[in-house]
């Protein structure tokens, strides 16, 4: 039996892999809205999650058997997760021309990073599960239960840590009045575009157009909300949720920071439109910390 895994290590590895893979299954649901092609995409990410969990699971038995060199394969894992980010980014960029509106590079970058970090979830959860199994000195059943519990606690903490905010957290989103004056589109009195040059276009927007205005709750939130990538992400979510018959615009008001999103949707439902915009995630690349910006730098008053 020399060279074979012991029963204890086998249980440790299997438990860690199961808990780590479950961590990926649980977190993949949160990305459903952002998912481009879910049946196959789902499988791809479950398999990479399984691989991540496996790498985390075997690290502890490798250490316990004094196989320290084997732990360097964790660097391989990091490389693999970077490839996950890269492939996700490429896949979403390939889809850009087929969507109603562009996701935009900022949103794609955010989604790709999220997918990468979710694989680290699996790795860390599996690793924590394995460590706990090794530390708890009891029967196999007790060890398994304790390690699984710790694994899920770590998952909960990681989820809380990485949970981002959405537009609804920092802004009010309200339905807005659409007007067309001399073939120019106005939303709540704010000029949006003059692309409605024909009678048909003006009529279509007046009859079927929908618009919402995003009002920042605090002045400094304007920096985030008015970011081009952030507005594009909001527009993308709106068009993705309701579909687009024709036209979609965003416009910002320099005076008071209102942001307009206007479109002619396929599903004409104002509540869904407001909800879609509210639930648009705040992109990591656009976030600004007000407290950091207020801090005094050395040498300054």
């Amino acid at each position: 039996m020399d060279g074979m895994l012991s029963r204890e290590h086998t249980i440790l590895i299997v438990t860690s892999i199961i808990v780590g893979t479950l961590a990926r299954i649980i977190t993949i649901k949160e990305d459903f809205r952002q998912y481009p092609s879910y049946p196959n995409g789902y499988l791809i990410h479950l398999v990479t999650g399984f691989v991540a969990a496996s790498l985390g699971a075997v690290a502890i038995p490798a250490l316990m058997t004094k196989n320290f060199v084997a732990v360097t394969f964790l660097t391989l894992a990091i490389q693999q997760f970077r490839d996950v980010r890269k492939s996700e980014r490429e896949s979403l960029k390939d889809l850009e021309n087929t969507e109603y509106a562009y996701r935009g590079d900022a949103y794609i970058d955010g989604i790709a990073k999220t997918f990468e970090s979710r694989n680290y979830f699996s790795l860390i959860v599996a690793l924590a599960t394995g460590i706990t199994y090794e530390i708890v000195d009891s029967s196999a059943w007790i060890n398994t239960i304790c390690s699984a519990v710790v694994g899920f606690i770590i998952l909960y903490i990681l989820k809380r840590f990485s949970k981002g905010k959405s537009i609804g957290d920092i802004a009010e989103v309200k339905e807005a009045k659409i007007e067309v004056k001399n073939h120019e589109l106005y939303v709540d009195g704010l000029y949006v575009t003059n692309l409605l040059g024909t009678e048909n276009a003006s009529k279509l927007f007046l009859e079927e157009g929908r618009a919402v205005v995003i009002y920042p709750k605090k002045h400094h939130f304007r920096v985030t909300l008015e970011n081009f990538g952030q507005r594009q992400a909001a527009l993308f979510e709106a068009t993705r949720t309701l579909g687009v018959k024709r036209y979609h615009f965003t416009r910002r008001d320099f005076e008071n920071g209102r942001v307009v999103i206007a479109l002619v949707p396929i599903i004409n439902d104002k509540d869904k439109l407001i909800e879609a915009v509210k639930k648009t995630p705040l992109l990591e690349s656009t976030k600004k910390s007000e407290s950091v910006m207020n801090s005094n730098m050395v040498g300054r008053e």
Binding site: A101, Y102, G104, V192, T193, L195, F228, R231, Q232, L235, H248, F249, T250, R251, R252
Partner: peptide, 9 residues
Amino acid sequence: MGREANTEP
């Protein structure tokens, strides 16, 4: 207008 009116400039 460009980036302001529509997302694809």
